[in-house]
Amino acid sequence: MKEIRNCFNQDLKEYKSLAISLIAIRSLAKNKISDMKILAGATNFSILSSLPDSNDFDADCRKFLENTINLQEVLVNYDNHQGVFEELVHAKIIQRWYEFLSQLFKYILNSHFSNQKNYTTSKSFKFDTYLDLSVDTGDNIIQNIQERALEKFDFLKADDKLKQIEKILNKNVNNEVKKKIKKHIIVRNTWQHNNGIVRKYDLGQLGDSKIILMNDQAQELQVKENEKLIITYYELLEVNRDFRDVSNILIPND
């Protein structure tokens, strides 16, 4: 299981590097556009200098790529969507967390049925699945049970997934850390389902009247109902650290 944890933590490092790279590219591009406007007096530029003679581009796509783009519109569009790169990386981290928990659960099932457990588990843990006499035989029943259990696990709520892993491994993630993990997932869901605007439902899920994020000055910012969440690089550092800490609690080195 340490290998699963190490791969997860390595991916977290790569996502942090990705965020830095995207932010740097964004900053360089913005400065370059400003330089073009000031030094060359340019107001437009083309996305591509030429297009291949291919049917892969439909008429609308070809027209878009052949047209020039107004530099001022580019800057305005950017200013209206600040944080979009950070949102992308944030969503990737949350998805990787789900994958990490599923990988752990799959490993636990495989090691249990193969009698190759090299870790201590809770003796009281139970996970319900079902027997299908129309397809289950002595040759495939173990594999079928594992597949059904994993499928059921993947459909659990995020909180319940973590609780299941905690219980199986006989570990305890304190409530303060759990609330942080829950907040990160709620932030992702709010962006996915409501364009980042905080709803009463989101606050109810968190059990609070506000969602606290790190702003672009590395200071805490309280976001309340009907206000918009802005994900910054400093918030990504918090997300990265919290998930890494939980992975190390579930699977410690000693």
Score class of each variant (00 low, 15 high):
247 S>V: 04
101 L>T: 04
31 N>P: 10
184 H>Y: 01
217 Q>K: 14
56 D>H: 14
74 V>G: 11
231 I>G: 00
4 I>F: 05
50 S>R: 14
46 S>V: 12
177 V>A: 15
107 Y>K: 06
194 N>C: 05
192 Q>V: 10
8 F>W: 00
102 S>N: 10
103 Q>D: 07
188 R>T: 13
16 K>E: 03
13 K>Y: 15
225 E>L: 01
169 L>D: 07
71 L>R: 10
108 I>H: 06
7 C>M: 05
187 V>F: 10
59 A>Q: 12
92 K>V: 13
62 R>D: 08
165 I>W: 02
73 E>K: 04
153 F>C: 11
22 L>A: 02
4 I>Y: 06
219 Q>M: 07
154 D>R: 12
50 S>Y: 10
194 N>K: 12
237 L>Q: 05
155 F>Y: 03
57 F>I: 08
117 K>F: 12
235 E>F: 08
194 N>G: 05
84 V>S: 03
139 D>W: 04
206 L>D: 01
21 S>Q: 11
89 V>D: 14
221 L>S: 07
223 V>L: 07
208 D>Q: 07
47 I>F: 10
253 N>M: 08
72 Q>A: 14
81 H>N: 09
249 I>T: 02
211 I>K: 04
127 F>T: 02
217 Q>W: 11
136 D>I: 03
109 L>H: 04
193 H>C: 02
209 S>C: 10
168 I>K: 10
68 T>F: 07
214 M>Y: 09
231 I>R: 01
233 Y>R: 04
56 D>R: 15
47 I>L: 06
54 S>F: 10
12 L>G: 03
192 Q>F: 13
14 E>L: 11
13 K>H: 09
148 R>S: 02
132 D>Q: 01
7 C>Y: 06
144 N>Y: 06
49 S>Q: 06
34 S>E: 15
82 Q>H: 04
168 I>W: 09
194 N>V: 06
228 K>P: 08
141 I>N: 03
118 N>I: 05
59 A>W: 15
50 S>H: 06
92 K>I: 08
64 F>N: 15
104 L>S: 05
21 S>G: 04
216 D>S: 13
76 V>Y: 14
53 D>H: 07
